[in-house]
Simulated scan of single mutants.
Amino acid sequence: MEYLSFDPATKNLSLVHGEIPKPGPDEILVRVHYSGICGTDLHILDGSFPAKKDGALTLGHEFSGVIEDIGNIVKGFKIGQSVAIDPNSGCNKCDFCHTGKYHFCDNGGINNTIGIFRNGGWSTHAVVPESQVYLLPSGVEMPQAALAEPLSCLAHGWDIINPVNVGTNILVIGSGIIGLLWACLLHLHGSRKTVTISEPIEARREAVKKLDLDYEINSPSELKDKRFDLAVDCSGSGPAMEAAVPLLKRGGRLCVFGVANPKATLTLSPFDIYMKELTILGVNINPFTFPKGLALVRAMSKQYLIFENLGIKVYKLSEYKDAFEALKKGAISKAVFKCC
């Protein structure tokens, strides 16, 4: 098989050839077709996000493919089925897991994610637990299925921020791929003339227009006289979040969705939070929302998940340097590897 191997000690990424692994009794071998590069992956590569430290790691926690082999006690799947992988799980033993919050689990959640702490999908083949494999719904194509994981995180965020009624004035901070997906999700749920997207980079502001959502697109400097009921941060930028808080109306809410550098900080006015009864909401991965993510892929594919409109470009594994260079330059919003 062919895979990208990351050395945490040297921060070196290299293309490697090796033997195709065998699945364990309760595992499934997936022939990976498409695997996305997430912003979290970029943070792992530069050493600013926690990941496996002891030995080489194959990243990639957003991927879809076809079952090539199954363990001898796997009952729910067959060879040849098209699937997507939920990279997150819990230990199923701790209090967090027993109360349905496995994303807080010390031994699971983000601490045991496929592609972050276990070998993932930047590879032609990946071995994954049966419990984390999902059949693709009818009508879902393999490329779009690689977006099921980020959309499942959006589904968790949607559950947290609801109710969001039609007519709610919403600010989406940042128009990278996550900001674009949030914009599409809000449009899917009926928000039309009441969404504003804030983006400092002109090229990204222009790119939003390809989605034809009829949203207002502003630079941050153009927001000073506007007020919002809800702000969804998709940038992970502390200064951007700080600037958004004064723009919230009384009773307003800030949803912190973008993954910030662990050392980033916010300076907020407790008096303003008190006087305006502001709410700050965090969103951490996708506890039990992967089926909702797949449902969103199915609902959004034809109108919203067109790669060209979203600024997504597909690369071979061997073209990984080109993919990262394009992301670094901002020439694309997201890169997806075609692994087969």
Rank of each mutant, 00 (worst) to 15 (best):
T113I: 13
H125D: 13
V127E: 09
V128D: 10
V133H: 05
I116D: 05
I110R: 11
G121M: 03
G121H: 00
W122G: 09
V127M: 12
P143L: 04
G120Q: 02
P137M: 01
L136G: 04
T113Y: 11
V128Q: 07
W122P: 00
N111Y: 15
S131V: 10
P137E: 05
V133N: 08
E130V: 09
F117D: 03
P137L: 02
T124K: 13
P129K: 04
G121W: 00
N111T: 09
P143D: 05
G121I: 01
S123Q: 02
W122S: 05
G115S: 11
G115L: 10
M142N: 08
R118Q: 15
I110P: 10
L136M: 06
E130Y: 04
V127P: 06
A126D: 06
S131H: 13
G108C: 10
M142H: 11
F117S: 06
G121Y: 03
S123Y: 03
L135C: 07
F117E: 10
T113G: 14
G108D: 09
M142A: 14
N119I: 07
S123M: 02
G108P: 01
M142G: 11
V127W: 10
G120M: 03
Q132P: 09
F117P: 03
H125I: 09
V140W: 13
G109P: 10
N111E: 08
A126C: 13
T113H: 10
G121L: 00
N119G: 09
I116N: 12
S131Y: 12
V140K: 08
S123L: 00
A126W: 11
I114C: 02
N112E: 10
G120C: 00
P137W: 09
G120T: 01
